[in-house]
Design a protein around this nucleic acid. Structure first.
Length: 296
DNA sequence: GACAGTGCGTACACACGCAA
DNA sequence: TTGCGTGTGTACGCACTGTC
């Protein structure tokens, strides 16, 4: 077994096809077949089920994917650690919920980018569950999510608390309790969004029947449709404040026991703190005025 | 320097199964 | 039935390394 075999194996597993892996790797397809077979012979086990429409990972193959990711990531880290100077540079991939990215991050990222122009900073937005999986699979250096969460492989820092409010069209009458919204259509982000999970939690706690849901991919679409009276939504007050000022929508305070969610920054416990990530963490803590985890 | 062995990669032919 | 997409097997060339 060697690094190249693991790279070929991992690419094939991710593509779900030897042909696609060969294209991705710029190898001949039969060469990929040979390398997979070498690995299978070496490990004395089948890594893929072969069938006419492609290949599927076997249980041992699934286990090897996990190890391959760790091994290749560690090698990448070692290369980065050997090659990097103390000045922050190189790639830095940060994930974020769309709401956080829209309100809290622009200033932070712009300032960081000005300070460290040699860092290749990438922001990836998506729901909380997607961000967690991306961090766990080493696709992101860290991510802003709604939490707190518990996972043995992750460390987290609280960044800020957000007040959640119900949002309706500007002409909507005052909502005095969560029961008032039971018959309305709720506009939510796609599955995996923590605000959607929060709404489900509230409904369960209140013993209410599931509300009719309408899924959206972007924040602006939700706000636009709420404004038009299509339905209502549950969003952080910080997100909708400017829209409410413009008179497009109206916010309604909900019970204290439901109204706050924490935004956390997560990263893998075993991830290498590169100069770029270290600078980002310092910058983020300054920006949100939070203490380091090791400070009391 | 010449030769043999080895590893890596490509080209090609082939078999198989699915969908039109 | 045919075309297409898939994986497999084999022959071959090239580069590198070790031995004489």
């Amino acid at each position: 077994m060697n690094i190249q075999l693991l790279q070929v194996f991992l690419t094939t597993a991710r593509e779900g096809s030897i042909s696609k892996a060969a294209l991705t790797l710029n190898y001949a397809q039969s060469n990929v077949t040979n390398k997979i077979q070498q690995l299978e012979n070496d490990l004395q086990t089948k890594l893929f089920y072969r069938h006419s429409r492609g290949i599927t990972l076997t249980p041992p193959g699934q286990i090897l994917v996990s190890y391959s990711e760790k091994i290749l990531h560690t090698i990448e880290e070692a290369r980065a650690a050997m090659g990097e100077s103390s000045a922050p540079s190189g790639p830095l991939r940060i994930g974020s919920m769309e709401t956080t990215a829209a309100v809290w991050l622009p200033q932070l990222l712009a300032h960081y980018n000005n300070l460290y122009p040699n860092v290749d900073l990438n922001l990836v937005t998506g729901p909380t569950e997607q961000q967690i999986q991306a961090v766990l699979h080493y696709e992101l250096n860290g991510a802003f999510i709604s939490g707190p969460i518990e996972h043995p492989d992750l460390v987290q820092e609280k960044v800020l608390d957000e007040e959640m409010v119900l949002v309706t069209s500007a002409s909507h009458p005052v909502i005095s309790s969560i029961q008032d919204v039971q018959t309305q259509t709720m506009l939510v982000f796609r599955k995996g969004c923590s605000y959607r999970a929060k709404l489900n939690h509230i409904l369960q706690e209140e013993g209410l029947l599931p509300i009719k849901l309408m899924e959206f991919g972007i924040l602006e679409a939700i706000i636009g449709c709420v404004s038009a009276g299509l339905g209502i939504s549950l969003l952080p007050r910080s997100i909708i404040a400017s829209h409410e000022k413009e008179g497009r929508i109206r916010s309604h305070t909900i019970s204290d026991k439901y109204s706050f969610v924490s935004t956390m920054f997560i990263r893998r416990k075993d991830t290498l703190i590169t100069p770029a990530l270290s600078a980002f963490l310092t910058h983020m803590r300054d920006h949100f005025q939070i203490k380091r985890p090791d400070q009391s």
